[in-house]
Design a protein around this nucleic acid. Structure first.
Lengths: 332, 332
DNA sequence: ACCCGACATGGATACGTTTTCATGCATCTC
DNA sequence: GAGATGCATGAAAACGTATCCATGTCGGGT
């Protein structure tokens, strides 16, 4: 009953060779054809499965990829994770998932856990900035940032969506429709996106129309509702993520703002329900899955090299949530 | 530059004790107060972090929890994963995530990977049936099924939503509204739910109104559209998951069926966008996050015992997608 | 015929930890 | 006071693997 698992030693004995030879055969080292075949046969017969534990200890690293996301509940990160998993699976590497909740402290804690586990490859959507990631890099972890990059960590390669162009085309679209008072509803860690918004809007930028929420649904809704109530003169809003967009739709409905008649809405990130909304939401689609996949490729292929980052294209998908600027809704 | 990481041996030397003592102190074993303090001080000074690699090899098991889900893109599983992660984090255990795509072969492959990694605790939404999980159990893994349980694996504890009651109340609600031809749009691995549907409907059940899709969006849409076109006399549909519900809404819109006037719709699983839909969707809410959390609790607390499964309540949330049966829409 | 290189092979070692076992010391009991 | 009991402690073994190194063998080149 108390079966010990078959080890490399068992295989070696059964094949009448040394353990070193078995190890070589299984890791693709050189061996004579007949020996190789015999070892493989015996290994298959005994249903031998190499123990990752032994191997990991020996080579001082647990294969596997650490994946640190703000929130696995958000479909954007879900798709990103899916991409990572797809790539990791093709490489036979396990993925250790952790969620940071956009909290630096939790992020640091998770990094510590990964270090302890001997994980030496990490894909992260960074929440914290420079000093949190410093020990990680010093410890020799190959790290790739996805979706956004940590401030002051330019040496870490990153896989990003082309936020700048995405924001610009969205703003161009809105201004082309006649909108002038355009609000930005942002989330945590989107300095890049916010900067692009400011730049694209140029002289039209109104700091009061820029609102930042934390990562939760409640916070997003509060930010949206507050914005709409405080500044009834705005005619368009760019939501910097699907959570923010959801909040905007909800808040608009609550305040009896009709979309797109009273309020034009563009949302970052295309999600399935964007089409189900009425009106269907105009969105800036991001290749979330590709971001994950490419990040995984980078972190796996990195043979000590420090590859250059990747910028993936975004796409403005026009549906029905934007219209020409009507009369301002504030002075009825 | 070539810093070796500090090991337990370094700590032992610096504290002028044996490695065994250090190990004991750090694992909460007995030691004299002064020794304990000295060891702890030195360990903190050297920033010693025990290597999970060494420990895992020694005790022949890598802590950590394997989590096998059909699709991390589906928000239901996203929430479930979130629950698992929350519980695992409080226990300091890493979580290895794998997605099966509801494919038995991939599931078996992932199980193999977990075994190789030395993972001895698994939470799974099982796709395959009995024989796939047999080796897993024989290998001594403590396993907990979540959301559904594998056919013929009654010995595995499971954490389920109370599908039976959920379906029954939904059907009662629909029949109360006068509906008689009620369709069921199901996904993979929902035998339980389907059986409940049949039982709740009793004599009204019409086998032609039961359609099963595979796990993908395309398949779900095809199933829904096919059903609606083939049987224009149906007046209500129960979608067995948020993916199916999404497909139903989409297909209904495509075929110009107005909800709830022409078609009443109840969807399993409450998702944020259910409220954004127009009309807002009436749903059977499942405590997805709790399912994950409880499953993690079970798999962690299981001290060799084989705990009894858990059944969590569902809740019918009435919104606007169901109405009284109108005139049948087929003979215009 | 001899030497040298190439190659296959197996023994031994190290990876960092936990745990068992034996030892030594102090205290308690009769 | 002697034996028994308890406790803190350290040496050593074990976990399963990959790799270094030495050894043996074969073939080709001079």
């Amino acid at each position: 009953m108390n079966m010990r698992r078959t080890t490399i030693k068992d295989v070696a004995e059964a094949a009448r060779v040394g353990v070193a030879t078995v190890s070589r055969v299984l890791s693709g080292g050189s061996a004579s054809p007949e020996t190789r075949e015999r070892v493989l046969t015996v290994a298959a017969q005994l249903d031998y499965r190499p123990s990752a534990l032994g191997r990991n200890l020996r080579q001082q690293r647990s294969g596997g990829i650490g994946l640190l996301l703000p929130d696995i509940t958000d479909t954007f990160y879900g798709r990103l994770a899916d991409g990572v998993l797809a790539c990791a699976r093709s490489a036979g590497e396990p993925v250790i998932l952790g969620t940071t909740g956009d909290d630096e402290e939790r992020e640091a804690e998770l990094i510590g856990m990964l270090l302890e586990q001997g994980v030496d490859r990490v894909i992260a959507v960074p929440s914290g900035d420079s000093e949190i990631w410093a020990p990680t890099l010093r410890a020799g972890l190959t790290t790739v940032f996805a979706h956004r990059n940590a401030a002051g960590r330019d040496e870490v390669p990153s896989v990003l969506a082309d936020d700048r162009t995405g924001v610009r085309t969205a703003i161009d679209y809105l201004t082309g429709l006649g909108h002038r008072r355009i609000a930005y509803l942002g989330g945590p860690g989107q300095k890049q996106r916010l900067a692009a918004f400011r730049q694209a809007l140029g002289a039209l930028v109104d700091e009061e129309l820029i609102v930042l929420a934390r990562g939760t649904r409640d916070s997003a809704y509060a930010a949206a509702a507050g914005l709409f109530q405080h500044r009834p003169d705005l005619t368009a809003v760019l939501a910097g993520g699907n959570l923010l967009g959801e909040a905007a739709v909800l808040a608009a409905r609550e305040l009896d703002l009709r979309v797109p008649r009273d309020l034009s809405l563009v949302m970052f990130d295309d999600v399935p329900w964007a089409e189900l909304c009425s009106p269907p939401l105009t969105v800036i689609a991001q290749p979330a899955r590709d971001i994950g996949y490419r990040a995984a490729e980078l972190v796996l292929r990195a043979g000590g090299r420090r590859p250059r980052g990747v910028l993936l294209p975004t796409e403005l998908i026009v549906r029905g949530s934007c219209g020409p600027r009507g009369t301002s809704r504030s002075p009825r």
